[in-house]
Design a protein around this nucleic acid. Sequence first.
DNA 1: TGACCATTTTGGATCGTTCCAACAAATTCA
DNA 2: TGAATTTGTTGGAACGATCCAAAATGGTCA
Lengths: 345, 345
Amino acid sequence: MGRPRVTVIDIAQAAGVSKSTVSLVLQGSPLVKGTTRAKVVEAMNELGYVYNRGAANLRQTGSKSGIVGVVVNDLTNGFFAELAVGVDIVVQSAGFVQFLSNTGESIDRQREVVASMREHGISGLLVSPARGTDPSDFAPLVEAGIPVVVVVRSLPGGKLSSVVADNPSGVAGAVRHLVSLGHRRIAFLGGFQDTAVFHERLSGYRSAVTAAGFGFDEALVVPSAPSRAGGADAVARALAVEERPTAAVCFNDAVAFGACDGLRSHRLEPGRDFAVVGFDDVIEARTAVPALTTVSVDPQAMGRRAGQLLLKQIAAGGVSSEAVMTSVRLVVRESCGAPRLAAQA
Amino acid sequence: MGRPRVTVIDIAQAAGVSKSTVSLVLQGSPLVKGTTRAKVVEAMNELGYVYNRGAANLRQTGSKSGIVGVVVNDLTNGFFAELAVGVDIVVQSAGFVQFLSNTGESIDRQREVVASMREHGISGLLVSPARGTDPSDFAPLVEAGIPVVVVVRSLPGGKLSSVVADNPSGVAGAVRHLVSLGHRRIAFLGGFQDTAVFHERLSGYRSAVTAAGFGFDEALVVPSAPSRAGGADAVARALAVEERPTAAVCFNDAVAFGACDGLRSHRLEPGRDFAVVGFDDVIEARTAVPALTTVSVDPQAMGRRAGQLLLKQIAAGGVSSEAVMTSVRLVVRESCGAPRLAAQA
DNA sequence: TGACCATTTTGGATCGTTCCAACAAATTCA
DNA sequence: TGAATTTGTTGGAACGATCCAAAATGGTCA
């Protein structure tokens, strides 16, 4: 049980040197002679020494704890789990460990978790904020010189660094694909108008649609809850506009599935009578009937990218603000009505 | 940037008391007078004080760091993500934070991660070990009085506490269900023979099959890789034994899906010509065709249970060994050929 | 009033490490 | 040879909290 801890002093004694020398060895300093280093290392193995980062950290300026905090809003969601894995990979290979916590979209929980991480002296924080997060919640960290990187969802008024998917170009690519299939009236379905992601995606729609020379038609933009039910509802409303659309790009895959439901209840078969494109590429997208054409974002790659950015800022010491967009790609399946061959394009 | 840290001494000064008193307040001691406490708390808010756990920890005996380490072998797998969430819930509400890392089935990585966690002074470790983990890897922790709880996969020769699903009774229940549907020749398909989980599940099969009065037939046990391909292979071999089986319970859902593939290539329709039962209840089980009858383990509940056990051991101070089994339940869908009504039984 | 008690408060010493300035030993150079 | 330089090593003072024994405070009672 409570056996006395082995400390640098014990090592020093066993190796016949001073504790300062042991410390130097610990830090891999080139100042110590090879033979001395060997003696020390041997003593450490001998006695089963465990480095005490807490103590080291106490003395070290700038709290280089070697811990990065990672906070996600829903670990249950495969997307975020992948993201966390991506972060873990780069962070771990840089010799850091990751404090990972899940907020389950609760702002209170998020606050607690972040506070707790701060007490533990994290060197940086990576967060996929819960819905409705106030950006100023992170101000104290930034003021204290702790880098903060926001992922997936960007925060308005952002002085914070962020890594988000390239939403505009993802949607734009989807629109271009539909245009190339001959569609002229393309709707944009679903999503809450008060979120940053909605506006990013909508802007991609807008620019692609005008670039194609169709002009932007407000009536073809139908917001809704970003859920299956919302999608069904949205497509119904879209079908009611005069000069009805023949295709839609949806806010996300859930909306897209809902749109398919809605189409069927109007006796329209998605993929044949009406083209549907989603966003996210959730697992079911592949196996659904018809298989969903969608914009795929690689969450693990995103996690890696975000981890790199955070590490860079930690290394730089200062807190700078940088916004990164990770690329996305269109995965052509069946719901857009394109012949399967197009998938290879 | 590097603004000087606010310490207990600053607070003491601002509140006109001694640092000891501030410390008492920090620990919620009943010794301090209400008015004094209020002054101190106000000063803390005023100056934006952040508790330094590292420093506290240094002085405190027994390393009550308030950190628990959680190591899983595959965070990408929804099962483990859910598990981690379950752990997080109980651990967090007890005021601990969780260090979560992913090993991706790499033993080396696992070793690194555990070492790193130890350096950070975790108060307990919860681990779903990577395949091929040597139980003695955790001996140093146990010797140092740090509780270790193994989840999901139990480790042979286990002096360690563990929380695993009740594999025997899960499989036994599946067998009984098949018997009730009239099956007499039931195979056990898939899984590596050298894993503990395999033997646990097989033992459930064995006992249920003998309890039903059929006698245990070695030929009906067909191990294979615990994958889709392995399942296809296993079912093919099972169909080749004389007096061929009419049903199978599979090592896990992946094997079960493979078995369905294999059946079809033998012109047998799963659920109609041959009954298949899986284990795990992965997400696709519900949506597959036919929907998979399977044994469901609730990973989040398991995580909560494991978290509780770990906290209990941390609180107790000592390291005791306890083995917990979490209950499982059979989810009847279509692949076993039972009429849908049976699902309500 | 002074002895006694309960309640609050307090100044060091301490935890395990790193930093710093100073020292000893070995080497180089004039 | 002696001074200057390089190369290794070292003791003590931090870091920011907790613990302990002791002191201050206030009340009660003979």
